[in-house]
Write a protein that binds this DNA or RNA. Structure first.
Ligand SMILES: [Mn+2]
Ligand SMILES: [Mn+2]
Ligand SMILES: [Mn+2]
Ligand SMILES: [Mn+2]
Lengths: 218, 218
DNA sequence: TGTTTTTGTTAGGTAAGCCTAACTTGCATA
DNA sequence: TATGCAAGTTAGGCTTACCTAACAAAAACA
């Protein structure tokens, strides 16, 4: 049985490695920043997770998840995304509210609960932010995704997911008129700072590089 | 913000005092037994809860909840019972499974979540064990309840709630053919050990004093 | 290649929540 | 009223998960 904290470390490692295609190792400082703790605290935990055979790690080396660690992480992500879907679909929360509550719910221990919840939701494939929900076997198809910042001027694309799950970002996304499946036309992009002008349902907006990098499109 | 542990102490105190009519103070050892910890641990926590003005307590004296402590406890019980109802009604868990999972869910922090859950469940009045669910204002009507052990020979009564929420007890209750609203006829009671013979739906069973004291009837 | 900067580690300390062992208080009952 | 036992408290220790400050290693860069 893993503690709440250990689970959060595994989940963070999954996001920093396995989920980011092309990058499969993380560093101490990076992990510390992601979890809002100090590198010294991370170092303590790395020793414990290594001892439990959940991560690969050598002193001064890079960190990666073992198969077992990966499986544990995927299970937490599965719970997180199913709970988000429940909150959004059944309790009518808005998509900027679900993440924070799911951060708590993801730690509830009961395999039966999550399987019943999945059935109740009729086996959803994606959560409210467009992220794929792993199945009960721990299978999750991670496909390389383009971001809005990579779309050429003049082209139109479809929003399929958001990278940032924070309330402030999601509220901003809604304000620009965007949601899952929105069609976005790229009108222009400044050479100097990459600020883009986009059109959504006939409405024009200017968005930053940072914003565009957090929007996944197809 | 209260910790998971502090919440469990308040809930235990509520069950030992306010909810038990006629008894409104508890002792250190009693609380320790209820929480499966040692009296020394309870003593530590009592100092903290007093400091936070959640309990009335003097060294070597009895313990009781302040108005604020009571309110906090009722909120946790409200969450516990609404989650049990959700698990039972929506996810089709059996009544002997819901308590354990609700012990975890009751600590999720979000007033909005619990109010939306209550609405989703259409404002239930009782949980799957027949216990009243406090409303959002913290109101809970505690009425004195008779137990099966107090019913006279020859009389018939109706099961309205169970006191013990453990899986073993609840499975036994089901095995005897009982559930909420079951009609129970008391056939006999031994003078020596108070073992009772009862009839439920034409089926006869013998139950112990301990069993009968955990069945609330009307 | 030498030096600076970044990254990572260690030592030592804190708070929460638990424990055991030893002690004190107060209540029941002789 | 004495006294023995149950109830309650204290002291000191443990583990988890965090911290700061000081240090070591590796990477970047000049
Ligand atoms: Mn999320
Ligand atoms: Mn989490
Ligand atoms: Mn219960
Ligand atoms: Mn609890």
């Amino acid at each position: 049985m893993l503690s709440h904290t250990e689970e959060n470390y595994l989940k963070a490692l999954f996001h920093l490695t396995t989920e980011n295609i092309g990058k499969n190792k993380a560093g101490t400082n990076e992990l510390a920043a992601h979890l809002n703790v100090k590198p010294a605290s991370v170092n303590d935990m790395l020793k414990k997770l290594k001892e439990k055979k959940l991560i690969h790690y050598e002193k001064y080396g890079k960190i990666s998840l073992t198969a077992e660690g990966k499986r544990k992480a995927v299970d937490i992500i599965r719970k997180h995304r199913l709970w988000e879907t429940f909150l959004y679909e059944k309790l009518e929360f808005s998509w900027d509210e679900v993440h924070e509550i799911a951060e708590q719910l993801e730690h509830i221990q009961s395999a039966k609960l999550i399987d019943k919840l999945e059935k109740f939701l009729d086996y959803p494939e994606f959560d409210p932010h467009g992220d794929a929900i792993p199945n009960a076997k721990g299978e999750l198809n991670i496909q390389p995704r383009k971001t809005l910042s990579e779309i050429a001027i003049g082209k139109t694309c479809k929003l399929i997911a958001v990278k940032d799950n924070s309330a402030t970002f999601l509220q901003y996304v809604v304000k620009v008129g965007l949601g899952i499946s929105s069609k976005i036309k790229v009108l222009s992009r400044q050479d100097y700072d990459a600020i883009m002008e986009i059109e959504v349902d006939g409405k024009r907006s200017s968005v930053s590089q940072k914003f565009a990098e957090n929007i996944y499109v197809l």
